[in-house]
Amino acid sequence: MAERETSQSVDRAAADWVARLDRAPLSDEDIEQLEQWLAGDPRRHGALLRARAMWDYSDMGSALGPQYDPASFERKTSQIPEEKSPPQVTGRGRRPLAWLGAMAASVILTLSLTLTVEMPKAYATTLGQIQLVPLDDGSTITLNTATEVSVQYQDRQRRVRLSHGEAYFEVTADPNRPFVVEVDERRVHASKAAFVVRKLGDTHTEVIVQSGHIELSASPDDDARTTLAANSRVSLPPSAVKGNILVDRIAPDQLLRDLAWRQGKLAFQGETLAMAASAFARYSDVHIVVADPALAREPVTGLFVANDPAGFSRAVAQVFDAKLERTETEIVLTRTY
């Protein structure tokens, strides 16, 4: 097993990135490498955030002038003879100057970092929560229950990473900056479109297009793309499983039912009671348990509040003449024979 990177190594690597940013703007390949480095260890984000906090010291860097060279500054200050001092203060005459030089260098490089790369912004919802996230360009993301995304806008690309959950994207057109959603090592490319990306646990990743069109690449390094038009859907196996991308058409009324969660509802049209119980489990700590196999196969139709499994269960018990028992964490439905 590889050894965990030390904090000192993280700081040194961050300093190297800052130095590269100071020399010249990063290429697309460099930006990709930087983002991969940031994603490799959560401490790396903290290192960059600490660097940004140095902004308050920017006046100190300016005072040293544009010709400031931290290495030269350190050499020169180290050559200054130390004056004889009482024992309790010996050696302190030189260190503040060296610290000042290092601080100013950090500020100058941090300024370049801040202006070149925007830090990703994270958004997340808890169980049963739905959140609308407006973006700077007029696009929006609606997060379903228990969903986490990070957003990073760059000069040449608008990038979103979906870690888990489900999100509905309404993307405004920007010919100079494509909108890219990354999920499970795949990428969804969009210009002006409305679509859903769903990644629940280790199951398949699902993409549904409501309007416009998107392009799907099987991996970050794959130039081949599959186009999905409005009212189409694709279900992708986990990234470790290879296979062809098969696109299905989806009826408009089915699409509206699939998107009912944006209004906090769950819509069913003939799904089994077992499937409905599974859908409600995404929105509440209280789970519906259908103890009778025959009852679990009964079809369900209707529009229900997503985070109200108790109300749904009462309706089901009445329709199917079932018995309902509730504990703190479960609602058990059984047949009454």
Rank of each mutant, 00 (worst) to 15 (best):
M1G: 12
A2I: 12
E5A: 12
A13K: 13
A13F: 07
W17F: 10
V18A: 14
D22P: 01
D22C: 12
R23Y: 03
P25K: 03
L26V: 13
E35M: 12
W37Q: 12
G40D: 03
P42W: 09
R43A: 10
L48I: 10
L49I: 03
S58W: 07
D59G: 15
A63R: 05
P66C: 13
Y68F: 13
D69P: 02
D69R: 06
P70M: 14
A71T: 12
S72K: 06
S72G: 13
T77C: 13
S78Q: 04
I80D: 08
E82K: 06
E82F: 06
K84G: 15
K84Y: 09
K84L: 14
G93D: 12
P96H: 09
G101S: 02
G101H: 04
A102G: 11
V107H: 00
I108W: 08
L111E: 03
L111D: 05
L115I: 10
E118L: 03
E118K: 04
E118I: 04
M119K: 01
P120Y: 03
K121V: 14
Y123C: 09
A124S: 10
L127V: 07
P134E: 15
L143H: 05
A146N: 04
E148P: 06
Y153N: 14
D155F: 08
R156C: 02
R156Q: 13
Q157T: 11
R159W: 05
E166Q: 07
A167Y: 00
A167I: 01
E170I: 09
E170N: 14
V171Q: 09
V181T: 00
E182N: 06
D184E: 06
H189C: 11
K192Q: 10
K192G: 10
K192N: 12
A193C: 13
F195V: 01
V197K: 01
R198S: 15
K199H: 08
K199G: 13
K199V: 03
L200G: 05
E206R: 08
V207W: 00
Q210W: 06
H213D: 13
S217N: 11
D221I: 04
R225D: 04
R233C: 04
V234F: 02
L236D: 01
P237Q: 15
P238G: 15
A240W: 00
A240R: 05
V241G: 02
K242M: 14
I245M: 04
I245F: 03
R249N: 15
R249V: 10
I250T: 14
W261S: 09
W261C: 11
Q269S: 14
S278Y: 07
F280E: 04
F280Q: 01
F280A: 09
V286W: 04
V289M: 11
V289Q: 07
V290K: 02
A291Q: 01
P299C: 15
V300T: 07
T301D: 10
L303F: 05
V305P: 00
A306W: 00
P309K: 05
S313I: 09
Q318L: 08
R326W: 08
T334W: 03
Y337A: 15
